[in-house]
Write a protein that binds this DNA or RNA. Structure first.
Lengths: 159, 159
DNA sequence: CTACAACTTCAAGTTCACTTTAGGTCAAGG
DNA sequence: CCTTGACCTAAAGTGAACTTGAAGTTGTAG
C-alpha cells in the first residue's frame, strides 16, 4: 500500500495524471488513509502497461477496453492481431520516414521533392495509406518538464 | 491551376482542412478566381509530404518549421538526424508492442502480466523511455468517415 | 496540540488538429 | 438576368489527454 506521491515518484507521472487515470478507470486505488488514496504496488506495472499501450498509439479508451481494471489484458485476440498488423504498417512508414530523413540530412538536392531517392522513400511511406484512410503515428521529443501536449490524426492521402 | 475541390478530390482531404493548412502556412494558394482559391498542381506533392510527416509523428508546427512554404525541405540537418534517431527509438518500441500483441493473441496465461515473455517484451518497450521523458507515438484505425480524433502524449515512465 | 505540507474534489483551462456554423459572395448554367 | 450551389471568412465548437486553480481536509513533524 503506497500513496500517490510514491506512485508519482516511481512512475514519473504527476499525481494529477494518476487521479485522472483513476477517474477514467485505468487504474484503481485500493483504499484510503483519511482522504488520501492508497495504491497497491502493482499499480506500477499497470502504469507500465498503460505507458506501453500509449507509446504504441492506443488511446486511453482503447487501453481501458483492452485491459480489465484488474490489470490483466483480457483482450479479444482478433483485436490484438489487428492491432499488431496496424503496428506493422506503422513501423514500415516510420522506417521510410526515418530513411527519408537520414537521406535528406546528407543529400543536397535543390529541393528534396526533386530528388528521386527522396521521392521513392516518400512513396513508400504513403503506400499503405493507400485505398483507405488508415493509421496514425507520432513521436514527441523530450521536453524538460513543462512540456506541451501534442496531437495527431492522419487521414490517408488518396494520392 | 486547380481549385480547392480538385485538390480535395485528389488528396482526399476536406476543403476545410486545406483552408486550415493554408492558414497555418503549410500550403499556399497561388491566386484567386474571384474569391476562390487556385492551387498549383504541385500542392498535392506538398500535401503528400505533410501527410508523410504527420504519419511519422511530426506536429503541423514541426512540419511547417522543417519545410519552407515553397515546399522544399529546407531543414537543419542536425534536426533531421535527431528526428531519425527518435524514429528509430519509436520503431523499436512499436516492434516490441507488436510482438507483445502477437504473443498475447496466442498465449493463454491467466494474466499477461505474469507471463515472462510478455513481461520481457514490455520491458523492451519501456526501455528507451528510460531516464528522461521522451517520445510519443500513435496509430489510429480506419474510420468510415465521421471519424473521431485521437491524441497522444507519452511521458516516459521512470519505471 | 497546532501548524502546514500534502493531499482532496470539482470546475475550468490548455493544446492540437480540425470541423462546424452562420452569414456572405459570385461564376456559371438556364 | 436571375438563381443557385460551390466557394468564401471569422468565430465558435469538438475530443483527447491532461493541467491548473480554488477551496477545503488531514496525517505528521515539532
Amino acid at each position: 500500500m503506497i500513496d500517490i506521491s510514491a506512485v508519482a515518484k516511481h512512475s514519473g507521472l504527476p499525481a494529477s495524471t494518476l487521479r485522472f487515470y483513476e477517474e477514467k478507470g485505468l487504474i484503481r486505488s485500493v483504499g484510503r488513509r483519511g482522504l488520501r488514496r492508497l495504491f497497491a504496488p502493482n499499480v506500477l506495472e499497470r502504469l507500465a502497461l498503460i505507458a506501453l499501450g500509449r507509446s504504441a498509439g492506443f488511446s486511453l479508451d482503447e487501453i481501458g477496453r483492452m485491459t480489465g481494471t484488474d490489470g490483466s489484458p483480457k483482450i479479444d485476440r482478433e483485436l490484438l492481431s489487428d492491432k499488431a498488423d496496424e503496428l506493422d504498417q506503422s513501423i514500415r512508414k516510420l522506417r521510410a520516414m526515418r530513411d527519408g530523413l537520414r537521406h535528406a540530412a546528407v543529400c543536397s538536392a535543390p529541393s528534396h521533392l526533386e530528388c528521386p531517392k527522396f521521392r521513392r522513400l516518400m512513396g513508400l511511406a504513403v503506400a499503405g495509406a493507400k485505398d483507405g484512410n488508415t493509421k496514425r503515428k507520432a513521436v514527441r521529443a523530450k521536453r524538460i518538464r513543462k512540456e506541451m501536449p501534442a496531437r495527431n490524426k492522419t487521414r490517408g492521402l488518396k494520392l
